[in-house]
Design a binder for these strands. Sequence first.
DNA 1: TACATTTATTGTATTTATACAATATTTAGT
DNA 2: ACTAAATATTGTATAAATACAATAAATGTA
Lengths: 93, 93
Amino acid sequence: MYYICSMRSRKMYNRVAILRQEKGMSRKELAEKIGVNFQTVGYLEREEYNPSLDLAFRISENFGLPIEFIFSTEPLKPLIEEIIHLKNKLGEL
Amino acid sequence: MYYICSMRSRKMYNRVAILRQEKGMSRKELAEKIGVNFQTVGYLEREEYNPSLDLAFRISENFGLPIEFIFSTEPLKPLIEEIIHLKNKLGEL
DNA sequence: TACATTTATTGTATTTATACAATATTTAGT
DNA sequence: ACTAAATATTGTATAAATACAATAAATGTA
C-alpha cells in the first residue's frame, strides 16, 4: 500500500525496544503501563511513527530516563557503545 | 464552536511564550526558526494543543534547553521561582 | 511436534497537530 | 489619536498518531 504525502516531522529514532527487552517486558505489558494499545508499541519500536509528546513523557517516566536519552533525531548508538564512551570519559580523569 | 471528542493525551504546559519574550522575538520570528506557521506558535503558547515530539525537539534545540525544562505535564512555575529555588539549594551548601 | 505467546502485517476509523486564510482585537510607537 | 505590528479568533483542510480487528509469521516451551 502506497501513500502520497508531504512530511512535516523528521523521523525519530528511539530505544524503546531495547529498554523494554532489558526489563523483560512484552509489548503488551509495556503498552498497559504507558496506556496505549499494544500494537502502538509495535509501531513505535519499528519507528513507523513518532509518539506524541505526552506519550514520549509517559515512556520517559516509565523507564525513569530523560526523553533525550530515549528519543533522538539521530540514529541512536547501542547501549554498549554508550557505556564504553562513558568509561573512556571517566578514564581520562 | 464545540467539539465532541475523547482525550488521548494529557494537557501539556510549556514555557515557550516566556522564553520567546525573553529573547525579544515575535511569534513570526520564532516560527521561522523552528519551521512552523506563526499561528502554530500561537496555539502552542496558549496551550491549545501539544506539539509533536519532533517540534518539541526543534523548540528545545532552538532555546538550547532540555525538553523537560520547557514542557511538562504539571503547570510550570515562573522562571523567577525556579531561580529562588536554585539559590536556596546553593545556600544550603 | 504441538501449543501458546509474541510480534508483524494489513486495513479501517478516529483524534490531534499543523497549515493556511480572513478578520478582529490588542499593543506599541509616532 | 493614528498607524503599524503583534496577537487572537474562527473556519476549513491535510497529515500524522492512535485504536482496534483480523490474520500471519515467528519464537519459545511442554
